[in-house]
Design a protein around this nucleic acid. Structure first.
Lengths: 197, 197, 197, 197
DNA sequence: TATGAATGAGTCTTCATTCAT
DNA sequence: AATGAATGAAGACTCATTCAT
């Protein structure tokens, strides 16, 4: 049975998450969260000491969901029936969604959080998930190269390159303008540099 | 003639810039700037109404300096004596510096600023300089392709790809960890996808 | 039979007392006591309504212990075998300990409590014990004077004088500095003014 | 010319002082002072950072006034025309006022302050003034003894004894009850132990 | 122009106290 | 009896902004 207290904690995290998605990290105050949750000032402090702590929790939870995707991705990648090209396509499609996501994205909040918290950079859920992804991509590309499906590229470098392009588009979508067309153009370009026509 | 007032304005902008470099955009207050400048509270308001306005001015000035570089780059690129490969190398070396710059970089402040100011995204100096760069790179790559110096790529897509990888590394260097080695690996990789060995 | 409830009450009082000894009266909150006792917030309120009430109870109990000493003192004083000088020496030695006691003393808390609670000044356990002591000392000195053991002093005034010097040293030890040597000097001085060499 | 700012500072100190006299130290908040002064919350912070700092200033000022008395006392004591007995009488009369002072006394606030601030005990204006007084009294009693005006007492011990009795009465007047009669009785007693009839 | 004192709104944080279980 | 979640009032502190000089 989930205790009432655990449910409330959940409620706070979910509410806070939607605030962080809408308005980023830096500008959110404990008061904002209190009001959005419809609880008392003191009540929030029973569960969390600061927006920093709350965001960490939001991140942790978001990563768990993301890990779900990664697991799926891993399964797909591990299945030798699927060609590397196909898996890469699957991956890019998912990333495309992330890049273009507006309402529901923690991207801006996460950037802001890590700008402010240099200490947290080394060991945090985001970082770990990120590195996992690099490893999976590297393996995948290696396999593709071995199978002659992909160009003869340095798999590790290519994997990271992919990640940097995606990261670059993610941040550009949130600081300048980035339309769907351009994302598609880029993804296509990446595919072209990896997969012989 | 530079009036006293213009000098003071300059002084404010320069001082604020160093604050923004050190501590980003969001956390800087009018009070911080007043204190760093050694002027009076009221005095600052004679010149600027908010940190927002000041940052805009800082950006404008930073872009002017950058334009200086762009002009140089343009000259180098336009000089038909220089091979496209050589110019791209020149460009990448400059970007490498930007990516790894710690002390003196407005990157974090700029990200924070545009995260908070969605309105400013469409028309701002950064954006314009950025687009100028894309155009120059596109021209350059086109020429390289035409000369048979580069692989047969879609010049526009390749130019943007370059920019996204760089942007991705810039933001990663400021939210996670990114060492010089990895930057070099990536730049090498880019070169390899463009320039036949 | 000691009920469970009475035991808990005891536990609270004892725990609170050690807090008051360590940190005085004013700064102690109900929360502090709850946490030190390891009981629930609501639980404490079943027994006491405020730190004020708790402190009163602590005082009452402390006075009972002190009354034990006073009874002993009274017995010693009443025993005509003991010279007045000897009894006074016995008394001063005990006071010396009190004055210099650091860890385990309620002195600061008591001062703070009565500073804040003017109403309680007239009738409280401290006051009563104090007056008992004055009476005992007065009797003792009277006897000593009658026996020719002490100088011819006004016994009531001398008794109070003794008490004021002690009080003065007690408070000085807790607001300024007061070393053991000075206490001894003073006790010696008092003895000299009372007892012919 | 006294600047407006210095006047306001003065105003704050005077207002705070009367609060400290009325209600002691611990219970006074920055808000209390703000309201008593009729200024804004932020306004007070322009001058002082905490009640601690304000009280220190109040003490400093009070000590300056007290030093005025001490100077007078010193002059009287130094004038060889005045017998030691007369000077002691002068001193005791002044202390009598202090002990019985109700409205206008910083005594309680000062005790509370030093209970809370053990660090400040060693070097603070109160302490210094106190030690000055001990020295003056010691000199005075020494002289009185030399002149045969006083009993043959240890001057240093007698001076401190005097101070402790006074301190004892001061604190007793503020934690229990102490009427004028008892004070007079005690002062008389002190005189009797020092000055032959 | 320039100053810096002054304001007051906004946020953080802690606690006494209550109350459903 | 006992728990501990919840509340809301209270106080600390900071800043953007104004204004008299």
């Amino acid at each position: 049975m989930t205790s009432k207290s655990a449910l409330k904690r959940e409620h706070i995290i979910r509410t806070a998450r939607s605030l962080f998605c809408k308005r980023g990290y830096s500008s959110i105050t404990m008061k904002d969260i209190v009001e959005a949750c419809g609880i008392s000032r003191g009540g929030l402090y029973l569960y969390f000491d600061s927006t920093h702590d709350i965001f960490l929790e939001v991140l942790k939870q978001a990563e768990q969901e993301e890990d779900g995707f990664n697991d799926d991705f891993y399964d797909v990648a591990a299945n030798s029936e699927n060609s590397a090209a196909k898996v890469i396509g699957f991956f890019l499609k998912a990333q495309r969604r992330e890049i273009l996501k507006k309402e529901d994205s923690l991207a801006v909040a996460t950037y802001e959080f890590f700008f402010e918290n240099k200490e947290s950079r080394k060991d945090n859920p985001i970082r770990n998930t990120y590195e996992d992804m690099v490893v999976m991509l590297t393996d995948l590309i290696e396999r593709g190269v071995a199978d002659g499906e992909l160009y003869e590229v340095d798999a590790a470098a290519a994997a990271r390159n992919l990640m940097f392009v995606i990261e670059g588009m993610k941040v550009t979508a949130r600081t300048m303008e980035l339309d769907q067309q351009m994302v598609d153009q880029q993804l296509m370009y990446i595919v072209d540099t990896l997969i012989p026509a």
